[in-house]
Amino acid sequence: CSKEGIMLQGMDEFHISLVEFFLSKRSFESYALCHDLCMSLPIDSLATVLKKANDDDVCTLKAGHKAKVLTVAIETRDQPWLVSKHDVPFIDLGSEYLVISRIPYDAKITVWSTRFARLAHELHQLSGSLDIQIIHEGARFTALDEGSGKKGCFIFRRAKVVDEYRDSEDDEPAGAIIHEFHRYFHKATSLRVSTKYLVHASKRAPLSSKVSVLMKEDQPLLVQYDFYEGVLKFYIAPRIAD
């Protein structure tokens, strides 16, 4: 927790995918902080507690300077006398927050997040890994089922006119449009990643109608959702050819 907001980080047990979630302080009704605070929490326990709240309940998260627990108070908005309190004890992960240095990416595409979710799901049916190529003209997501020889491919062509891009899902044009593709293209780039982790990342589509895919040769793939209250990033370690 910092004066800007709350940043969450988590990694899968195999250290293949790291998720980073920033929630700006402006997304909270009130946000007070005396000094920066870093907590390690068991995500299952936190999720179990937060699921007890209904959509319109008020949740208050509190932790003191040398606290060992995060206290979550859940209040019914129209019945403020009904409050339930839950403690989530900290755990010792033996590490603090991981600072990820910014790198200059070679290529970035932005596509509709629902289309991206469909792509990830369908290619996952075919193979455990997929190749992503971004070239000047567009992007290509390819998966090959080595058993049957079946190949699946999704192609995104670069928008001829950036104005073709529309900001509402209802107006989605027939062809997938890559928004501002030219602005972030420096050189042709390709990466191979596991479809399983791409499926995980693509399931966050409800957060934002658009998703960005950023690549640099031999660097983790970055899948990023930007939204008003913050940003959600998935870093996925690449596969290399045998």
Binding site: H15, S129, E146
Partner: peptide, 14 residues
């Protein structure tokens, strides 16, 4: 499929 790398190669893991 290729060999899966881990993030330890890219990030400075504690």
């Amino acid at each position: 499929m290729g060999r899966q790398q881990t993030l330890g190669k890219f990030f400075d893991m504690p």
